[in-house]
Amino acid sequence: MNKMSNSLKTGEHWLASPTTRVLAALIIVFVLGLVFNADGAFFKWGTHRDMLRAVSVYGILACGMTLVIISGGIDLSVGSILALTAVCFSLFTIHYQTAVIVAVVLCLMISSLCGIMSGAIIARFKIQPFISTLAMMVFARGLAKWVSGGQKISTAVQQADGTYQYVEVPGVFNFINSKLLGDNITVVTVIFLICIVISYIILTKLRYGRYLYAIGGNEEAARLSGVPIMKSKLLAYGLSGLFCGVAGICQAAQELQGDPEAGISYELSAIAMVVIGGTSLQGGRGNMWLTLIGVLTIGYLEKILSINAIGEDKRLMLTGAIIIAAVLLQKTKK
């Protein structure tokens, strides 16, 4: 793995490299799954496929979150923007029967615009990302409720006479929910993996990716080196918004409706995944593979607990404990 060869070059022992430590958490969880395999359920590929499907929407949010956190910020608005896009996408495709490509482009534009607005407020008025995106979280939620009239936008469409009539599920919903490669992987998972690759390319191959690391590492030094702070932040938050849009579309397809209440507390799950991956909340460090490992760690944990029929109460408590354990595992001993 790329990070590992890097640490070899710097003379650091590979066992001490961050990737190894993060991977250790995933492996421990995976081994737990092998032991508590719920009568062999864990050995079936279907279990893993379902885990990947369940974790994909969160994972897409975590992609944008990683970009923002590396730049030294945070984005609390992802859950609300997800709901807003889910509502808009359902309205376009179910009620107005807009062409799919138009609906997708419009929704992604709306969600990106929300992100760009947060970014602009942060960069232009020097307002803390926590506050700015908190405001966007509340605003976008309100917007989602206003657009939807507080109703779930489902295939039960109210007619002129007040009665409800079911319309056909849009083809795009069915497509996103379908499985590929002989039922072995779902389309959402493929979308999630594409998001990971796009974020990876931005962070490692593009000039603006380098700028995000520089700004997260030391904003003033970056500014004095001529790094365009404003553009870089707009890009980070705009991309986070864009990924929220993608996640929102997937969410709508999976639920077969646009729920203005969807995505509540998803921002915290996304942050948890990034943090378990070892990306520092202080910014300047981290990468996409770490986030992928973080997403899989939480995904497997939830799956293993659920196939062993452990209730949600205990599942939440255990997840909390695991977050701390994973972060402790990464702490380098001084």
């Binding site: 690391y213 520089a214 590492g217 030391n218 003033e220 030094a221 970056a222 004095l224 300047g284 460090r285």
Partner: peptide, 13 residues
């Protein structure tokens, strides 16, 4: 340290 370098980044970067 405060305004010259990004301490966490490497020499090339």
């Amino acid at each position: 340290k405060a305004t010259g370098l990004i301490l966490g980044m490497n020499i090339v970067e």
